[in-house]
Amino acid sequence: MSLPIEINDMEPEFKALVLDRVPTANLDLCLTCGTCTAGCPASELFEMDPRKLVRMVVLGLDEEIAKTPWAWVCTMCTRCVNACPMKVDIPKLVYNMRAGWPREKRPKGILGSCDMHIRAGNAMGVPTEDFIWTVEDVAEEIQMTDPRFKDMQVSVDRPGAYYAINQNSREPVTEPDELAPLWKILHAVGADWTYPSVMWGGENYCLFLADDEGWRYILEEFVYHIDNTLKCPVVVNTE
């Protein structure tokens, strides 16, 4: 049953919280035009859409907002804010909805990958020595069997290399042969490169989990390793 909204009773605490963390979120500026919703593939999933969500935040429907699993269906792709005439930052709003879930109640898959990354430096939990072994093993196979690549340089943690290239942890674990095409390209152009051994996973599940602390820790460890141990002037994000 529909109920009239009592303006005087509105206590949009979540809105205040988000605006405190993200002063540029512009939540009060929404014109309700619906451009966000029209262009959002997540519209209508779990009976939610971006415009409706912003209305709920502004009206202070905090309990409903805290409960909706839509926070995990929106991919924070930023297509909405890109198109929004008032630049209402719905993705950052969603990030803060995620952050509002008790950590242990957040989706297990994302939680596990974030924790693994903090512990092992990559979301699949590959021990560093296994990563190095796999890289060396695949490289050796190619160097031995294909004369065109007998001098191909592949290394982990080679200080002073020009490029430090991160690597999605899926390849070394489930499809190590898929590592090699990139190496061949790097060899062809004579690139001076290495893989870092610290936080080498190119993925970032702590961002997805909305775990600021974990995300920051991963970045700090990575930056320290690159700047102080390897001293590589350029970091390259992989495909």
Binding site: P41, A42, P69, W72, V73, C74, T75, M76, C77, R79, P107, K108, G109, I110, G112, S113, Y205, F208, L209
Partner: peptide
């Protein structure tokens, strides 16, 4: 977006 981003592939929905 492909729909797999932002952790959606691991979110279970």
């Amino acid at each position: 977006c492909c729909g797999g981003g932002g952790g959606a592939l691991q979110a279970g929905f």
